[in-house]
Design a protein around this nucleic acid. Structure first.
Lengths: 128, 128
DNA sequence: ATTATTGTATTAACACAATAATACAAAGCG
DNA sequence: CGCTTTGTATTATTGTGTTAATACAATAAT
């Protein structure tokens, strides 16, 4: 995984936020873990340091990260952060999905059926 | 439903596109149906006419709408448009959802379980 | 103390989304 | 025809996302 790929339709700094929320939710960044420097991340992501700074600064406002000037940036040393993040992201993903499907006029049974079909398609043909 | 509500994090013209795709997919705008004028929609949505124009113009490029100068704008007179639109939107919603959940480390069974829980919560407590 | 590393702040420049105010083109209508 | 309605185009302005180039502040390492 060389460089990150961004959706040109959404602000990059938000996508960086998402990436870190996902990584932390998965447990790839345990509480207290050090995050790469703004400059290193910028090089790795192929974006401007200011863009990374903006993203990490937002995550700090959310209480997910903590920064120490001259030292570095760390995942908040709170063992519950990961669980809360994971639960919140699962919930919002489900809610978004359900909302999108209901707007299309599907009822609960149809929603579950459509998901099942999509899951089977993704498992059958394109196993990669 | 007085005025539309927009997510300030996404371009308004894209959200207007989404709204129309949803409405057409639901069948609320059958093939050949006339769409309100750019100016009326702008007033109704509480946005600038140019923003609406941009959105509807994009839908035209997709073949969903057709415009006649001095007359008005209409849903493409193609009976298959709705089905294609509906199928495409269901599929992309499922794919987005599955992708978001897999990033979080959930397998197929957990994805279906989480959705089931969310559906039950939405049906039980907050019936509105 | 000096140096390197890190987070932070500032300023400028550019692109795009959105608003605003017009003007023009084409169709419908009385 | 004359008027209205509609889609379309143009120009200017504002706000924001992004890049860019610096500078400053604080910590660690030497």
């Amino acid at each position: 995984m060389n460089k990150w790929i961004f959706d040109p339709d959404k602000p990059i700094f938000r996508q960086i936020c998402e990436k870190f929320r996902d990584e932390i939710a998965r447990g790839n960044f345990p509480p207290g873990a050090k995050v790469p420097s703004v400059r290193d991340l910028a090089v790795f992501a192929g974006v401007n340091p200011n863009t990374v700074q903006r993203a990490l600064s937002d995550l700090e406002d959310e209480g997910i990260l903590v920064s120490r000037r001259g030292d570095g940036r760390y995942v908040a040393d709170d063992a519950t952060v990961r669980d809360k993040l994971l639960a919140a992201r699962i919930r919002s993903a489900c809610d978004d999905f359900i909302g999108a499907m209901r707007v299309l006029g599907l009822d609960d049974r149809e929603i579950e059926r459509s998901l099942g079909e999509a899951l089977r398609e993704k498992s059958d043909g394109k196993e990669g």
